[in-house]
Design a protein around this nucleic acid. Sequence first.
DNA 1: TCAGTAACAGTAATTATTACTGATTATAAT
DNA 2: ATTATAATCAGTAATAATTACTGTTACTGA
Lengths: 128, 128
Amino acid sequence: MAIKRFSKQRELILSAVMNTTEHPTAEMVYTRLKPENPALSLGTVYRNLNQLVAEGSLIRLPFTVERFDATTAPHAHFLCRECGKVYDIMDICYDPALDDKAQLSSGHVVKQHELFFDGTCVNCTEKM
Amino acid sequence: MAIKRFSKQRELILSAVMNTTEHPTAEMVYTRLKPENPALSLGTVYRNLNQLVAEGSLIRLPFTVERFDATTAPHAHFLCRECGKVYDIMDICYDPALDDKAQLSSGHVVKQHELFFDGTCVNCTEKM
DNA sequence: TCAGTAACAGTAATTATTACTGATTATAAT
DNA sequence: ATTATAATCAGTAATAATTACTGTTACTGA
């Protein structure tokens, strides 16, 4: 059950995440869309983000406040500790050998991995 | 300011995290300690965990419910999607070259990275 | 010994997220 | 097209995680 219907709101929310590089939170998506879609509700944003992750259109980044990313191909991320911005790191390519190695040494079935860098981003460095 | 005093509660909370491998949440630490320390309050656990992270005695794992780890040396983690348990992956050693590479390609000042694996752990695999 | 203040327990408040409710609307079969 | 159905919606209530506040206790250094 739970056959997917077309939903204008879902399209809207998906494209909002696709058209930004800022790895928005649910709140950020809502704030972005609300002015031009006054009827939109925050619950709808949460519900559709979860659906989009479930169907694989988005990935969920497990920060303490969740963030979403329309680049579903595995890639690394960078968190700026000063301003809180999250950036993609595309030049470090995903290494499947790591998964094999982790699986061998631990005995767990390893599906994938996430690589999180952190530090101070370019913009914040310039301001110092 | 804010000179650190000795605090029995802080010792208690630190040793609770040190004496387990389960990467406890604040709630788990509280539940563990409460029976033998009935006067302990949840706010105290949160406050002291944050202090211990600030002083470097613990690290914070940025899951959507925060977890803590007394192994402060950088190392990888594995999250079981079935049971939610978090394991250390010690056999994949920290690669500082990754930080350099990320910094060069992105321009950000990279301090460190975290490597998160996920999948199904040994215990859950056996039950299938 | 006592003034200053970190730390405490208890609790209120805040924030993030999910669940519920009754109304609306896409879809598929008539 | 019309209608039945169930997915989706907006609005809101509820829950869960975390932090902030309040009055009290107890170290610590003068």
